[in-house]
Design a protein around this nucleic acid. Sequence first.
DNA 1: CCTCTATGGCGAA
DNA 2: TCGCCCTAGAGGC
Length: 280
Amino acid sequence: MPEGHTLLRLARDLAAAFGGRPVRVSSPQGRFAADAALVDGSLCLGAESAGKHLFVELAGERYLHVHLGLIGKFDVVAKPAGAAGPSPVGQVRLRLENDTAYADLRGATQCDLVGPERRQQILDRLGEDPLRADADPRRAWERISRSARPIGDLLMDQSVVAGVGNVYRAEILFRHRIHPLRPGKTLRRGQFDALWQDLAELMEYGVRTGRIDTVREEHTPEAMGRPARRDDHGGEVYVYRRHGQDCLVCGARVRTDTLAGRNLFWCARCQPVFRSRAVG
DNA sequence: CCTCTATGGCGAA
DNA sequence: TCGCCCTAGAGGC
């Protein structure tokens, strides 16, 4: 689940469910039990996300810092007023609970109790977040336009652009016809500006709907008379995990490869390999 | 039962 | 670049 839009939704849901009231904090699985006990019963002030990081703010400048990693889930569930939450199912590292809701955290790579200095340190290390109104895309452009690293690598570097994951990476590069291995410094400013604008709009759509849909109207299942994508992501995409299938735009075979341990997906015809100079 | 995979990210070598 | 951490679900035997 976790790209930036998921974390922003989660922050909103947690703030709505727990903000302004005391919250019970526990660790059914046990690994977070000592820290949970330190803040159990604290007043919850709210929750915020930054890139793929999540902070639940408690009174006394204490924050529950969560990073879901690849497989983490943080389920926020309403319950009848006054009822007890159900017994935890599976490996619940952290449970937040009050009279009207509970939230179970599983599989996260990070779950720490931190103070304001550590929180600020985490925020300072993050690049520009397309979901933030005060994001400054020029800072991301400065990094990308000076780098020989592949644009597919730069987009996943959280110190360059915060919140982008493998699905948005694959899809934004397809929509802008840019090969994932193309060096960042070979992008033109206009290309980057269009990409950033589009990325912000796609991710805002993801916040509204809770899913990643990136296909344009003319490529929807209805428009093309093709079956809808029915997998665990739910969204309609051009290339992400569609390797071996036909490109929705040109019909060529969608390709896949690995870069820095993560899967790339692209259409070899729509996203041709970039050649920096004619060499005969 | 087993193996594999996944929208991440870290540190060791 | 690799192994490893985290968890759950799917698929193979």
